Simulated assay, not measured.
Amino acid sequence: MTTPPFALPTPAEIDVVSAQLGRPARGVVGIAARCVCGNPTVVATSPRLDDGSPFPTFYYLTHPAATAAMSTLEATQVMPELAAQLDDEDVAASYRAAHDAYLADRAQFGEVPEIAGISAGGMPTRVKCLHALAGHALAAGQGVNPIGDAALERAAWSPARCECDDPGAATR
């Protein structure tokens, strides 16, 4: 087992994530990507929530501006265009590798039989949720998830600039 590239979240970070989501954060095991100001952008979530529910979406996009940007892309019918990229053998192979990497990352926090082999966002053969794919791309870094990378490139939001309502929230 490898060590995940993030530390356990602090209570203050959980408060920020809860505010971003507009509800209590559930099952957060780490902050997998951050805004340039330090606020959480993507959380890593336990594959089984405290109530026993299986939760396949290990990398969960929480940043309000990022989630809005992915919603806008989905509403403007970008997903079929991104899905067409899977016709390219190299892109399809990279996407399958992203799926495998996602599963390996999540497995570090436990195996859940109900979601065995299920990653997120439609991987490894479809494009179903840009929020999940962008979250994975932000957490794993550029070059790991080609469809997540493509969605981020097309988005009106960028991880390189802060669009947080309260940029200092994570540091208080």
Rank of each mutant, 00 (worst) to 15 (best):
D100Q: 13
A44L: 12
A101D: 14
D87W: 07
T72M: 08
P56F: 13
A66I: 02
S46A: 15
A98V: 00
D100T: 13
F58D: 08
V91N: 02
A68E: 07
V43H: 03
S46V: 06
D90H: 14
Q77P: 00
A33L: 06
F109C: 02
R106G: 02
A65R: 04
M70P: 00
P40N: 01
S94V: 01
S53Q: 13
D100N: 11
D87K: 14
P54R: 15
A65V: 06
D90V: 12
D88W: 06
M70L: 15
A107V: 03
T45I: 14
Y59A: 15
S46H: 15
D50L: 15
I115P: 02
A69T: 09
A44P: 06
A44F: 07
D50Q: 15
D88K: 07
E74Y: 05
E81Q: 09
S46R: 05
A75F: 01
Y95Q: 13
D90M: 13
R96H: 11
S94G: 15
A84Y: 01
Q85G: 14
R34H: 07
R106L: 09
A104F: 01
P54Y: 03
D87Y: 11
F109V: 03
C37P: 10
H63W: 03
A104I: 02
S71E: 14
T72P: 08
T76E: 14
A66Y: 00
P40A: 02
H99I: 10
